[in-house]
Computed example of a mutant assay.
Amino acid sequence: MHIDLKGKTAIVTGSTRGIGYAIAAGLAGAGATVVITGRKQADVDAALSKLRDAVPGAQLRGVAADLGNAEGFAVLQKAEPVADILVNNLGIFKLQPFEEIPDAEWTRFFEINIMSGVRASRAYLPGMRQKNWGRIVFISSESGVNIPADMIHYGFTKTGNLAISRGLAKSVAGTGITVNAVLPGPTLSEGVQDLVAPGEGYDAALREANAFVKEHRGTSLIQRVATPEEVANMVVYVCSPQASATTGAALRVDGGVVDVII
């Protein structure tokens, strides 16, 4: 299967590193013009430089904006008013006992993990309707199905991603626009590396993360963490013309952690 996204503009939120960067690299490799986003200009510039080296000839742009609030999103929309492909990847996570999560933290998670995708989808959907073609992907998580006891606020937002993506898919029924959610399982992004083995390097983080999966995610069928690129492969396919009959779906890249048949 050859995925050709030439002529398509793709915006990937939260894409200076981790899963978002891997998705941006995958879409660029398929020929899309990719817009990298991040809060800090230095991070955006570094990601663009890295991606140009990884995908020679890639068509890339970057926007520095805090998409966790409406003001920051207005910056993105002014710079990039149109998108054919939108990947709502921006998200945060934090291990925290329920009793210790204050109201402000619930609001912060809601604004970043849910409202960033709501605002982006609301802004770019009209242009997709005009073309009768578009791809919107929400990066949810297996934690949206298996709510983790040690970060309930994160799981809550990832369940919200599933609800929004399914409802939005229904709202564009019969068009050339598809809306889906992708659910990664434990994935060795830079954020996870910093959590499990801060400052100890990739190999140490990989050992710690794989040990965590075996101990705390016993239903995993691959018995290891995934790589960001493995998640990105699913996203790139979902964004492709070949995925035209896949919409309203919750697509798991969780290594089999969620113990259900469908």
Rank of each mutant, 00 (worst) to 15 (best):
A47H: 05
L5A: 06
E142K: 07
E71N: 10
D203L: 10
I114W: 01
S240T: 09
I222L: 10
F73G: 02
G127F: 06
L76I: 03
Y124K: 06
E99Y: 03
P198V: 04
I177L: 09
A205H: 07
G7V: 05
S171Y: 00
S121Y: 05
L27I: 09
E230H: 07
E99M: 13
G174I: 10
P102K: 10
A25N: 08
T157Q: 06
T157H: 04
L168P: 01
R135T: 06
G20Q: 02
T159S: 15
R17V: 05
M115Y: 06
D150F: 13
G176V: 02
S143P: 00
L221T: 13
S189I: 01
S165K: 07
L95R: 12
F212C: 05
A169R: 11
G18V: 09
K50P: 00
A120N: 02
A123N: 09
R207N: 07
M151S: 07
E230Y: 05
Y124I: 11
A250I: 03
G62Q: 02
E71R: 11
G218R: 15
V182L: 12
A197M: 01
K170T: 10
I114C: 08
M1L: 05
S171D: 12
V35Y: 03
C239F: 08
Q77V: 00
A30L: 11
E142W: 03
V235Y: 07
V253E: 13
V12R: 00
P184K: 05
G160V: 05
A149D: 02
T157S: 14
V55N: 02
N146I: 14
Y21F: 14
T37L: 06
D254V: 12
P241I: 07
A42K: 13
A245V: 14
A30S: 14
M115C: 12
Y202Q: 02
Q96T: 14
V182I: 13
F93A: 13
S244F: 06
T219I: 09
I177H: 09
W106L: 12
K6S: 12
S165Y: 00
I164N: 00
S49P: 02
T247P: 08
I136T: 07
Y21L: 12
I262P: 01
R166S: 06
A209C: 05
R108A: 15
A163K: 00
V253T: 14
T37Q: 09
L251F: 09
G255Q: 13
A120R: 01
S49G: 15
L183I: 10
L188S: 08
G191T: 08
L183N: 15
N161E: 12
I101T: 15
Q59T: 07
S15W: 00
A204L: 06
S189V: 03
F138N: 10
S165M: 08
N69F: 01
